[in-house]
Amino acid sequence: MLSISVDSHFVHKMWQDNELSRMVEGGVPFPMVSDAGGKIGSVYGVYNEDAGVEMRGRFIIDPDGVIQAIEILSPPVGRNVSELIRQIKAFQHVRATNGDEATPSGWQPGKPTLKPGPDLVGHVWEVWKVDEAF
């Protein structure tokens, strides 16, 4: 986990000391990266030049360094950590099966996966129900 904003690492320290450590015991455990000037955010497509800040961009990067998921929210709406963790578990499952299995909408660990192949074409309705998406 890496958090990143245009604030300096000195301001990150002040935020950790004065506020975050009062929300999380011992403060947040991950590196708080400084992207002064928004260069990194520009490359990742989340830097808003007019406002001089970065949108709530969230990137899941696999062990090969490949981006598997992107979510970008405008500032007033916060993220959902449960959904982030669900997505990471799903990507890890798919990777562990070498891509032989896929996780349908609403999948959670322990729920059935799909094995894409010629036999499944047109038959997903038999093995997956819409209720499972929620």
């Binding site: 986990m1 890496l2 958090s3 990143i4 904003s5 245009v6 604030d7 301001v11 990150h12 002040m14 935020w15 506020e19 992207d35 955010g41 990742y44 989340v46 406002a51 800040v53 970065e54 949108m55 709530r56 961009g57 969230r58 990137f59 899941i60 990067i61 696999d62 062990p63 090969d64 360094g65 500032p75 007033p76 709406v77 916060g78 993220r79 982030l84 990471i88 990507f91 890890q92």
Partner: peptide, 22 residues
């Protein structure tokens, strides 16, 4: 350095700023 984390899953989270509300 991001590439130091090769071999691990990484979540990279951008946010508007320290001391913002959400």
């Amino acid at each position: 350095k991001l590439s130091d984390y090769l071999g691990k899953w990484v979540v990279l989270c951008f946010y508007p700023g320290d001391f913002t509300f959400v």
